[in-house]
Write a protein that binds this DNA or RNA. Structure first.
Lengths: 136, 136, 136, 136
DNA sequence: GTGGTCTAGACCACG
DNA sequence: GTGGTCTAGACCACT
């Protein structure tokens, strides 16, 4: 059980986010959307590195971040697995980070002269697409 | 009406954004909200740097970015002025950047396990607060 | 203000903890004990690396972990600073981690055939020595 | 009284400790609590490996560690048996290890902002629960 | 100068 | 085979 699945994860060269960030976001999304269920095994560090043609250290760093954030559990010699969901951050910390993300996002978007409705619509679409099977 | 006004701009040491980003965002916001009308003169690089107690290079870089984005026009020997509104980016480019910002934002927010409604509400608030009297 | 102080931090070659862990623990301790007050600047990555004669990447990793945990704020081009205290983790997560640490500690110590009183005494000493000027 | 008893030992997949560590801790605990009396035979490497569905190498390594620490004695051709109590480590070595464990534990716990009383209480509970009928 | 990211290649413990 | 750590050296954005 929990066979390793060829992860549907891609690195976009044009994406301004650093590679390690793209991996973290991608995996988080797969977990949040339920595509990677609790207990599922992730591709090995070396395996994913090869698949994405990036350095293994880069993948390792991303995985390690995800573990620190509580999304993954690492077992030396066995591999990495999707961790059971848990409320990691205090309400205050969640609030702080949400505020930060919103500030940054609006700062980015305001420069584009896009009507507020369209922005909200796009965000709503993207959030809906996650089909939050996991988040509370 | 091109008098140099003491810019209502502040640098927050606690703000996680780099200083140059704070300046760019701040000026863009002042323009978008109409507080800096078309044709208004901006403080000199040295002046603003002194006012904010930051490195002049940082201010220069921020101004240069704002000019490149079409928010400011340089008049040789006179300084920088708020440029008349125009389509500063191609529609495709706007789409690309919007997409990017949304992806990043959702990537950040997904980690927080916040209900989509609350996220949208916060974004809407923040967008509204900018009172885009100028942007279309 | 916030002059960089030659950090009272040492790497013990005999210590079984990896170097990066020793740095993280050491800095956390200095912050928790109040020896590094809020806003204090930390030695630069390269500087500390030289002082400890370890690779800068190792220090960078430790610092990055401390930032992720909310103990430090990093400002590119400026350096790292002790962050204002905040309740980062949910009560449940704190409980989980405390449980884990206790389990591990007792597992280590039970093998030593040391009377429980002595163990508790040593832990109490060590905790008291932190003079919790910062923790709530 | 040297009959092989079906060992009351379990491997928890969720446990963050590596498997070999879980075995070592488990056996030590059984000996310390007297559930495995002096002279008792331990399950064979293959037997325990099968029972726990882990790699025999892992069990062998755990047993070898326990022997090195003086908890088990090997009788050639017969298997492993619980060794009579003795001073397994020099006093200095015990002190060193205790010190190390305390340092690490406090380093972990300091990050959690938990009152010292609660920490001590939890440690005392856990130590008491081991009911050291055997250790001095 | 600062921190952040990436690559390359090595060694270790675990299974 | 697995993940984790460390070193070495490079490039980037920011100040």
């Amino acid at each position: 059980m929990t066979r390793r699945t060829p992860l549907l994860l891609q690195i976009a060269p044009g994406d301004p986010r650093p590679i390690n960030r793209q991996i973290v976001d991608g995996v988080r999304r797969l977990i949040a959307s339920g595509e990677l269920p609790v207990g599922a095994a992730l591709p090995s560090v070396r395996g994913l590195a090869q698949q994405l043609t990036v350095n293994p250290n880069t993948v390792a760093k991303a995985y390690s971040e995800l573990s620190a954030e509580g999304w993954l559990d690492a077992r030396a010699g066995l591999g990495l697995f999707v961790a059971p969901p848990r409320q990691r951050l205090s309400k205050a910390e969640v609030e702080r980070r949400l505020e930060e993300a919103v500030q940054r996002f609006v700062g980015d978007v305001i420069a584009l002269d896009v009507p507020a409705d369209r922005v909200l619509e796009r965000v709503a679409d993207e959030l809906a697409q996650l089909a939050p099977k996991r988040s509370a």
